[in-house]
Simulated scan of single mutants.
Amino acid sequence: MNTEQILFACLQEHCYFKLSGELRYTNATGMDDLIEQLFEQEQPACAQVVVDLNDVTFIDSTHIGLLASLARHCQQHQLPKPILFSTNTEVNQLLKGLCLETVFDFAEHPTNQAIDLTPVQVEQHSDDHKGKMILRAHEALLDLSDKNRQEFKPVVELLRKQLS
Score class of each variant (00 low, 15 high):
residue 44 P to E: 06
residue 49 V to Q: 08
residue 42 E to S: 15
residue 82 P to N: 06
residue 54 N to F: 08
residue 36 E to S: 13
residue 63 H to K: 07
residue 53 L to Q: 03
residue 36 E to C: 10
residue 73 H to A: 13
residue 39 F to R: 05
residue 18 K to V: 11
residue 20 S to E: 12
residue 75 Q to A: 12
residue 39 F to I: 08
residue 89 T to C: 07
residue 32 D to H: 14
residue 86 S to F: 10
residue 23 L to D: 00
residue 74 C to F: 07
residue 57 T to W: 04
residue 77 H to I: 08
residue 70 L to H: 00
residue 24 R to C: 09
residue 56 V to F: 04
residue 50 V to K: 02
residue 63 H to C: 09
residue 25 Y to K: 13
residue 34 L to Y: 06
residue 47 A to Q: 14
residue 61 S to A: 14
residue 72 R to M: 07
residue 77 H to V: 05
residue 69 S to T: 05
residue 88 N to C: 09
residue 47 A to G: 09
residue 27 N to E: 15
residue 37 Q to W: 11
residue 30 G to V: 11
residue 75 Q to M: 09
residue 51 V to T: 06
residue 29 T to D: 11
residue 63 H to E: 00
residue 82 P to E: 04
residue 51 V to Q: 09
residue 19 L to P: 03
residue 54 N to D: 10
residue 39 F to S: 06
residue 79 L to K: 06
residue 53 L to S: 04
residue 51 V to G: 04
residue 19 L to S: 02
residue 25 Y to M: 12
residue 56 V to C: 04
residue 25 Y to A: 15
residue 42 E to Y: 11
residue 85 F to W: 13
residue 50 V to P: 00
residue 45 A to H: 10
residue 58 F to W: 12
residue 59 I to H: 02
residue 67 L to C: 03
residue 49 V to W: 13
residue 84 L to W: 00
residue 50 V to Q: 02
residue 68 A to W: 01
residue 58 F to M: 11
residue 52 D to K: 01
residue 84 L to C: 02
residue 50 V to H: 01
residue 83 I to E: 04
residue 25 Y to F: 15
residue 59 I to Y: 05
residue 36 E to M: 12
residue 67 L to I: 02
residue 34 L to N: 09
residue 68 A to E: 02
residue 54 N to E: 12
residue 60 D to R: 05
residue 38 L to N: 03
residue 79 L to I: 09
residue 75 Q to S: 14
residue 83 I to S: 03
residue 32 D to Q: 13
residue 57 T to C: 08
residue 65 G to N: 01
residue 51 V to M: 05
residue 33 D to N: 14
residue 26 T to M: 14
residue 62 T to C: 10
residue 29 T to W: 08
residue 43 Q to D: 13
residue 33 D to M: 14
residue 60 D to F: 04
residue 51 V to D: 05
residue 55 D to W: 03
residue 42 E to T: 15
residue 61 S to I: 11
residue 29 T to Q: 15
residue 49 V to I: 15
residue 33 D to L: 13
residue 65 G to C: 01
residue 88 N to S: 08
residue 87 T to S: 13
residue 71 A to V: 09
residue 88 N to M: 05
residue 27 N to C: 15
residue 84 L to N: 00
residue 88 N to H: 11
residue 67 L to N: 02
residue 72 R to T: 12
residue 45 A to M: 13
residue 39 F to W: 04
residue 84 L to D: 00
residue 70 L to G: 03
residue 26 T to N: 15
residue 89 T to D: 10
residue 87 T to I: 14
residue 35 I to H: 03
residue 66 L to A: 08
residue 30 G to D: 14
residue 79 L to H: 08
residue 49 V to E: 06
residue 34 L to E: 05
residue 24 R to D: 10
residue 75 Q to F: 10
residue 39 F to A: 09
residue 71 A to M: 03
residue 19 L to F: 01
residue 53 L to H: 03
residue 80 P to Q: 10
